[in-house]
Design a protein around this nucleic acid. Sequence first.
DNA 1: GGGTGTTCGATGAAGTGTCAACCACGTCTA
DNA 2: TAGACGTGGTTGACACTTCATCGAACACCC
Lengths: 155, 155
Amino acid sequence: MGETARWLTPEEQHAWRSFIRLQERLGGRLARLLQTDSGLSGADFAVLVHLTDVPDGRQRYQDLGRALEWEKSRMSHHIARMAGRGLVVREECAEDARGAFVVITDAGRAAIEAAAPRHVEAVRELFLDHVTPAELRVLAQLSERVVSKLDDDRP
Amino acid sequence: MGETARWLTPEEQHAWRSFIRLQERLGGRLARLLQTDSGLSGADFAVLVHLTDVPDGRQRYQDLGRALEWEKSRMSHHIARMAGRGLVVREECAEDARGAFVVITDAGRAAIEAAAPRHVEAVRELFLDHVTPAELRVLAQLSERVVSKLDDDRP
DNA sequence: GGGTGTTCGATGAAGTGTCAACCACGTCTA
DNA sequence: TAGACGTGGTTGACACTTCATCGAACACCC
């Protein structure tokens, strides 16, 4: 007996499903808002935010990839698309001829400056405004703990 | 003064980022596990689970789409791919000649029966085991509340 | 110096999701 | 009953992500 896996209790099942649902709905809604009223995807947004936080708006693919936790292939494809739209440019790297830099353009800065306030407002209206500070603390703690376990587990 | 949007407080910023990170990491990890050791995507899994919970493993596109909260286009594309792999079949509908049914096949049942225990175990090991029952309750409540606000807002 | 192995990034293919347009069938109404 | 409208599902184009593979450049070590 007992070779069957432990199934979820009703509470666990319910909590897990609610959580998944929250991710799908909230993520979808925020992505759609960002796209329709700023022309950026969540990924574009993340790249641009990061580049504005870095000296000269300029960083190696490698380092940007690490910061965003993106695979190098994803970096390459995505930056190529963003470069096609003029949000960033690719620059050769003198010190290491294999490498390259991603550099934010003026258009990229303009895009993120226009998008950020709206996005923050959306995060407030759709999420933060409906969560108490205590709940938010619980969420943050739990998130960090689970992520750090994931990191321990398999790098 | 004050035309600038309310920015996030450091606590809000931190909580929000941790939460996003959790979603990306946990979701990615679970998806990869499911894919590599059962050959199913999360979407495949959701479809098959739902079909096993329904009489004769058979449901209208429409109803399945509503249950999963998928757009009809997504249904059509995804079911076509799953049918190509033999997990489900499409069946014409006698009562309404426009409509169609999605029906799980034996291969589909076999796939989900093999995948489900592993997936549940993964959800436990990667998530539930690191969250207290109290935290889980908070998460569930908060998720439901936010989702219901999203529903109120714009259908 | 000349392997040997490693790192950086590019590339192509395949699966996924969204949007917009479309078609075929049903329903309602004048 | 004919025309208008609504509904169920399909299709094609495009954006995004992952995977596997590749070529070029670097680093180490004999």
